[in-house]
């Protein structure tokens, strides 16, 4: 029975976010209160649980996420990312530029948040497209694969950091294992998968 309630709550959460287009934070609050009531938590305790959950989560994460965002911003604003990619393009040469794009995405992706990294790297992709006259998707996929993987696997990105906290995992070890797994994932999804023109 309780499993069914959880399933209903998750479906409700999905519907609230996708169909009603509710702000995800509000959707979580609404569903949390409803789920608590439905699962038999005394009404007067509901807000206590919600506040404790929020406090514990933010207490652990607010510094890492905010400082991480600041770090990403300064790397972006000062043009450091551009310089990294120039150096890599020279090292890898024209022939292996896909690998250069991939490594750039990976190095830039570790400190930068996904949206920041995306917006920052897209002009770079198009400058390469302009130089080489190759299709944009072919040039862009390796870099964006790298960016996606860092976003999904590696702290200090918000989601993996939060998971590390929840499971009492070791941030350093997770990062190490994450990099080991990320490399084949990026190579397969990037240079190997990207359709050749």
């Amino acid at each position: 029975m309780s499993l069914l309630i959880v399933a209903c709550c998750i479906i409700l959460l999905v519907l609230l976010i996708t169909w009603v287009k509710l702000n995800p934070f509000l959707a979580f609050l609404v569903v949390s209160l409803l789920a608590g009531w439905w699962l038999g938590i005394p009404v007067e305790q509901l807000t206590v649980s919600v506040k404790k959950g929020i406090g514990d989560m933010l207490g652990e994460l607010v510094i890492i996420i905010c400082v991480g965002a600041m770090l990403g911003k300064i790397v972006a604003e000062t043009g450091a990312a551009q310089k990294i990619s120039n150096v890599l393009m020279k090292t890898f040469g024209e022939k292996y530029f896909q690998w250069a794009m991939m490594v750039t995405g990976f190095i830039v992706g570790i400190p930068l948040f996904y949206n920041v990294g995306f917006v920052l790297l897209v002009p770079l992709i198009f400058s390469v497209v302009y130089q080489t006259k190759l299709p944009a998707v072919y040039v862009g996929i390796p870099m964006l694969a790298a960016l996606s993987v860092t976003h999904g696997f590696l702290p200090p990105h918000p989601s993996p950091s939060a998971l590390v906290t929840q499971f009492h995992a070791n941030l350093g070890l997770t990062l190490l294992y994450g990099i080991i797994i990320a490399i084949p994932a990026i190579i397969i999804a990037g240079p190997i998968f990207a359709p050749r023109p």
Binding site: N23, F28, L29, S49, V50, M57, L58, A69, A162
Partner: peptide, 22 residues
Amino acid sequence: DVALILLIVAGAGALKQIFIDS
């Protein structure tokens, strides 16, 4: 830029706590 992400994470924390407390 990350304000909303922080709130989403916080909201997920609330739901998690409800699942634990119940």
